[in-house]
Amino acid sequence: MKHEIIIAGFGGQGVLSMGMTLAYAGMVEGKEVSWMPSYGPEMRGGTANCTVIISDAIISSPIINSYDMAVILNQPSMEKFEDSVKENGHLLFEANNIMVKPTRQNVTIHEIPAMIESVKLENKKIMNMIMLGSILAVRPIVTIKSVLEALKKVLPDRHHHLIPINESALKRGMELVGELTTA
């Protein structure tokens, strides 16, 4: 099984750390992983993205141009990556940050109100973890338990007290997908 994911948005939305946490969780589960960030001029203009590959087998190329899943947190990234989701793949986007909605017919589209939910949880910084929860509800790439273990390694000790709020965010993100599907 192999998951090829692009996560894209503005700098500061937690795009790179969301991808890193996911990759780390994959590694915790003994899978092959790679995390490839954008670091070029586009990043200096404010947008950031990272490609995460999680696989049971050795990963040949860490550089890819079509994805099983795209997680989109701003409009420029939607324009850039909507067409690169594989047929029957998943396109998740953050509701509040996208003005022009995707129109693809051959992928499953998930509109996640992560920003509003992060405000309800009284911490806007955990929007990315809500999105990550939604990713895992759409495709169970890794378990929440592995993500929490990953957070312990990714976050410096002084931020470990924030793990419980991250956990609530992940769970809320998972619930959101269920609520949206049944709605």
Binding site: M36, Y39, P62
Partner: peptide, 10 residues
Amino acid sequence: DGALGQMMEP
């Protein structure tokens, strides 16, 4: 190269 320097792997 730049990509090998920037990418993360185990």
